[in-house]
Amino acid sequence: MLNWLLIFLPIAVYLEFSHGNPTWIFIASMIAILPLAGIMGRATEELAIRAGSTVGGLLNATFGNATELIIAFFALKAGKLEVVKASITGSILGNILLVLGLAVFLGGLKHKTQVFSQKNAGILTSLLTLSVLGLLIPAVFDLASVNFANFAQPADLDFRLSVAVAVVLILIYLGNVYFSLVTHKDLLSGHEEEGHEVAKWSVPKALGILLASTVAVGFMSEFLVGSLEEASQSLGLSEFFVGIILIPIIGNAAEHASAVVFAMKNKMDLAVTIAIGSTIQVALLVAPLLVLLGLAVGQKMDLVLHNPLELVAVVAGIVIANSIAKDGESNWLEGLMLLGVYVLLAFAFFYFPTVSAAAH
C-alpha cells in the first residue's frame, strides 16, 4: 500500500551524495523508511508462515522492532545518546497509547464492544510492568545517588548499573521467548490457527528482500541521523521531540498498521498482542541491546531517563495498559482516551525546553 513512497529512496540518496539541504534529506529518508519497514514486515511474515509457528514466532519477535533498532543504532553511533533514550521511551508510549489506542478506537467504531482473552492479556501486561520497571531502576538509582547519597558524579555507576540491567533484561526476554514458544505455546495456539495463511514468496525471495530492505533501512537511518541536528533546527523541532515522537512512529509503522487491521477484523487478541508484545520487545530486547552495542562502538549509553516527564509518562502508560486489559473488553471510547493521552503527551514533549545532557 505504501510502496509508492519508495520513490523517496533514490531521492534521499541523490540529496545525500549531492550535499543537498539537510532538511530535505531528513524528510526524504524518513518517508523512505515507511515502505521499507512494511516490506521488512512482509518478508518476515512470509518466512514465518513457511518456518512454522515456533520459528515463525521467534522471527516475528526478532524483527518486530528491527527498523527502530537500526535507526537508534546509527543515532547511538553518532553520539546522540539522549535521542536514543528518547526513542526507547517514545516507542513504549507509542505502542501502548497510539497503536493500542488506534486499534481500540477504530475497531470499536466498527464492532461496538470487542472482547479478548483476559488470561493472555494479563500475562502480557504483567510482563510489561516488570520489564518497564526494570528500565526505570537506573533512573531511580541516579536520582537516589544524587539527592540522598550526595554523590555528585554518578555517571560511571549509572553506566555500570545499566549494563547489568541490560544483561538481566535480555535473559528475561530469552525466558519469555522460551515460555511463549516452547513450554506454554498453547496459550498462543488460538491465534496461530486463525489465519491458515499460505506463503506467496519462496524462501530465497523472502530472505533476499529482507536483506535488501534491511540494508536500505540502514542507509536511510544513517542519512536521517546525519541530517537530524540541522533539520530539527530548521523545522523548529527539538531533537528530543524527534526522538520521542517521530522516530518511533516511523520505525513501527508496519506494526501500527497490522494492529489496526486486526482490530477492524474483530481480532482483538492479535491487536493487543501486537501492541503490548512490541512494547515488551522494546523494554527487554531493543533497549538492552543498544546499551551493549554502545560498548562495541565506544559510546557509554546508560538507561537513565533524566526528564521527569518521561518517567511519569512511562508509569502512566503501564497503568493505562493494565486498566484496558483487566476486563477483557474494549470500546471506541477507551481508544479515544488512549489517543487523547498520547496527543497531550506529544504537546508536552513538543513544548518541553531543550536541556543538554551536560546540564544534568
Results as ranks from 00 to 15, higher is better:
G317Q: 00
S189K: 14
T62A: 11
A28F: 06
G328T: 00
V286H: 00
L98C: 07
Q281P: 03
L285K: 03
L171Y: 08
A316H: 08
H306P: 01
K85H: 13
S180I: 04
S87W: 02
K205H: 11
G134F: 06
S18K: 14
L36I: 09
A283Q: 03
A139S: 15
N147Y: 15
L295A: 14
A275S: 15
A51S: 14
K110S: 13
I31G: 09
A275F: 01
K265Y: 03
L246A: 01
L124P: 01
S221D: 08
L128D: 02
F219E: 13
L36F: 06
L93Q: 03
F347M: 12
E239C: 07
L207M: 15
S323F: 15
A164M: 14
N176D: 08
L47C: 07
A199R: 07
I245V: 13
F350W: 12
A346E: 05
Y178Q: 08
A121Y: 03
H111T: 03
S221Q: 10
I88Q: 02
S234Q: 09
F151I: 09
G208I: 10
G20M: 10
P248L: 07
I250P: 01
T214V: 07
V99H: 01
D269T: 07
V272R: 05
K110V: 12
V99F: 05
F73Q: 00
A66C: 10
K200N: 11
L246F: 02
T23D: 00
N307F: 09
G208W: 15
V167Q: 07
V261N: 04
A72Q: 05
N266Q: 08
Q118L: 11
L228C: 13
N150K: 09
P35V: 10
I170R: 00
I123N: 12
I170F: 00
S87K: 02
S180E: 10
W332M: 13
K265G: 01
A271C: 12
M40E: 12
I96H: 00
N60D: 04
K267P: 02
G317Y: 02
V341H: 07
M1K: 13
F350H: 09
A283T: 02
I318T: 05
Q281D: 05
I209S: 07
I88S: 01
S145E: 05
L81Y: 06
F352S: 06
S234N: 12
E46A: 08
G243S: 11
K85Y: 08
V341G: 05
S258H: 06
K80V: 06
A358F: 15
A253V: 15
L36C: 06
L339R: 08
G107I: 04
K205F: 15
E45F: 01
W4G: 12
A43I: 08
A257P: 05
F241Q: 04
G340F: 12
H306S: 09
I280G: 02
S126V: 09
F352R: 07
A121R: 01
K300V: 00
G41K: 00
E255I: 01
K205R: 15
L47A: 04
K119G: 07
M264Q: 14
H360S: 14
L34M: 10
D158Y: 13
F219A: 15
V132L: 11
L59S: 05
K85I: 05
T113E: 13
S238W: 02
E45S: 08
V13D: 10
M30C: 12
S180A: 15
T44Q: 00
I7C: 13
G208E: 14
V315M: 09
